[in-house]
Design a protein around this nucleic acid. Structure first.
Length: 575
RNA sequence: UGAGGGAUCGUCUAGUGGUAGGACACCAGACUCUGGAUCUGGGAGCGGUGGUUCGAGCCCACCUCCCUCAGCCA
């Protein structure tokens, strides 16, 4: 058995499911759903919900539907539907043909609304939006009943049918639940159930001009699909009484139950649709699939694997307390995955010419390198070696600091999979004093794999052969935000409108160096036909993924994540 | 200050009256032809005050702090 399949996560929702199954509630069925609104791109926060819902279904022998909550045509667009479907599938989940749309239930929802009216539990209200707000009262004062609250069933039926027929303009009337204007829970102060919206719906076109509100539609959607456990985020906690009111008032058997959990927050990034949109529309990133974005499209392009994201969602757990997960946790997940899977190659980000003075001028040797030391089955590959190589600029230092194991004048170092070399001298740019090339000698007896080549040297460098290397572009990424949620509360002066202050603060915190494009990088020739989306470890540097911007003779790599870098820590603590 | 939630290492999360555990991060060491990986070790936590109990992170009381809600958004 695959040990990964055996892993079962425990959390408070699983406990509820356990109790329900034991009590044979819902006849022992477990049926969940992931209900996105098609009004934007999915991000890693959605991934948490997707993994939770599909994961719980799977580990309880249940089902999970994919359902588009398309009850608001003024905000939703068909193009999002395709991207959401793609993203959920990419993450690795299967809804087994149970792809549904709230809009498919409009007719049924309408007839249930009629039933509510007949039972005296809903009425048509002619108050304007502004008036409704005023009548609602405040946290501390009860609301006032609408003057239209006591209309007869007949009149309500007639008016509601005419609302549907399009006789009234947007906002002229709404259908409201008749609950309790004095309820301490504002959601129960006669909430709006239907509004008039003369907008064309992506799926139903102009068939409808009244659309159900979330609070009315959602419990019914769940009920229609036989959902047992309806998971949503914390901010809907106050809505649960209304969710239950709809189901109970309609007297529906085996009503699904709503369970709330804390949404995902990640350090060093933003997650709200509003801010994500600001990034895109403000030109701070290249688009929704910019590799810096926490969208699934962005993470995919960046090179994150679906399994690493699933693993992450699994390991962060689920609870009811608000939390902010350190983005390094996510990075750990992708490193762990790629360490096992990614083939190793050599690539130079900042080239420095290295000339081996005692190596034959026109000779090119074929050396061999392991594709993945973590996986011997990955085999080996040929790597050309010659007199002129490139190494990383930071791997040579004229006046090395303490603890520096790399190349320095008079010092020896191993070239990975090749020879031990010794630095003999440098050639400098006359004017700037910048080091143009390093000259060295090699020890012919030290070739990797050769008997007697086991001589130890402190450092090992990666390199490419000048004549065979491929010139590529590499895009390095850093966090979108420098810090997370500092100041947001502290710096708001009372004068400043809250919204504006927060926006400015968030833009102020943007990392000006979140992206660095290197156009003169060199990689070993084995990468010549690397397909878009393929991932590699550039030895000693990090994991990289071939970007779709690549063209035949110019590969473009995205840095997925760097390798853990102990040396940079040594440097930092030293200075 | 109405209602509904929440508080356990730096972070996330277990613990459901009986030795507070794991993961990430961090620190130290071993190993290494990747300063990667791996291995070993370490520091680090129950918001507060009382109470019940032989025994409390868990039960009770009071307090503190944090989050959500006044859309015809979801």
């Amino acid at each position: 058995m695959d040990p990964q399949e055996v892993k079962v996560s425990t959390n408070f929702i699983q406990e509820i499911i356990d109790r329900d199954r034991k009590a044979n509630k819902y006849g022992g069925r477990v049926h969940l759903r992931f209900p996105p609104e098609p009004n934007g791109y999915l991000h890693i926060g959605h991934a948490k919900s997707i993994c939770l819902n599909f994961g719980l279904a799977a580990q309880n022998g249940g089902l999970c539907n994919l359902r588009f909550d398309d009850t608001n045509p003024s905000k939703e667009e068909a193009e999002y539907i395709a991207s959401i479907i793609e993203d959920v599938r990419w993450l690795g989940f299967d809804w087994g043909g149970r792809l549904f749309y709230a809009s498919d239930y409009f007719e049924k929802m309408y007839s249930y609304a009629l039933r509510l009216i007949e039972r005296g539990k809903a009425y048509v209200c002619d108050l304007s939006p502004e008036e409704i707000r005023r009548y609602r009262g405040t946290f501390t004062e009860p609301g006032k009943e609408s003057p239209y609250r006591e209309r007869s069933v007949e009149e309500n039926l007639d008016l509601f049918q005419r609302m549907r027929a399009g006789e009234f303009s947007d906002g002229a009337r709404v259908l409201r639940a008749k609950i309790d204007m004095a309820s301490p829970n504002l959601n129960l102060r006669d909430p709006v159930l239907y509004r008039i919206l003369k907008a064309s719906h992506p799926r139903t076109g102009d068939k409808w001009c009244i659309y159900p509100m979330y609070d009315y539609a959602h419990p019914l959607e769940d009920y229609f699909e036989g959902i047992t456990h309806s998971l949503c985020t914390l901010e809907f906690e106050d809505h649960r009484p209304l969710y239950e009111w709809v189901l109970n008032t309609l007297n529906l058997p085996d009503p699904p139950q709503q369970i709330e959990f804390a949404r995902l927050n990640l350090t060093n990034t933003v997650m709200s649709k509003r801010r994500l949109r600001q990034l895109v529309e403000g030109g701070y990133v290249e688009g929704w699939d910019d590799p810096r974005m926490p969208t699934l499209a962005g993470l995919r392009r960046r090179g994150y694997t679906p399994q690493s994201i699933r693993d992450f969602c699994d390991r962060i757990g689920v609870a009811k307390s608000n939390s902010v997960v350190d983005v390094r946790f996510l990075e750990n997940c992708i490193r762990e995955d790629l360490n096992k899977e990614a083939p190793r190659v050599m690539g130079i980000l900042h080239p420095l010419k290295l000339i081996i003075d005692n190596y034959p001028e026109d000779q090119v040797e074929e050396l061999e390198g392991e594709n993945n030391p973590e996986d011997p089955a990955a085999g080996k590959r040929k790597i050309p070696f010659s007199r002129i190589l490139y190494i990383e600029q930071e791997d040579f230092c004229k006046a090395p600091p303490p603890q520096y194991f790399r190349l320095a004048p008079g010092r020896e170092v191993r070239l990975k999979n090749a020879y031990i070399i010794k630095a003999e001298g440098v050639v400098k740019e006359e004017k700037t004093g910048e080091i143009k090339e390093v000259h060295c000698t090699y020890d012919p007896e030290s070739r990797s794999g050769k008997p007697g080549a086991e001589r130890k040297v402190k450092g090992t460098l990666h390199w490419v052969s000048a004549g065979q290397a491929l010139k590529v572009e590499v895009r390095l990424y850093d966090y979108l935000l420098l810090d997370h949620k500092e100041k947001i509360t502290e710096e708001q002066s009372e004068e400043q409108p809250e919204e504006q202050a927060e926006t400015e603060d968030f833009i102020k915190q943007l990392n000006p160096r979140s992206r660095e494009v290197l156009t003169d990088c060199l990689v070993e020739p084995s990468l010549a036909r690397a397909p878009v989306g393929s991932r590699y470890q550039f030895i000693r540097k990090g994991y990289f993924c071939v970007d779709p911007d690549s063209i035949p003779h110019k590969l473009v790599f995205n840095q997925i994540v760097s390798l853990r870098d102990t040396w940079s820590k040594v440097l930092k603590t030293g200075s």
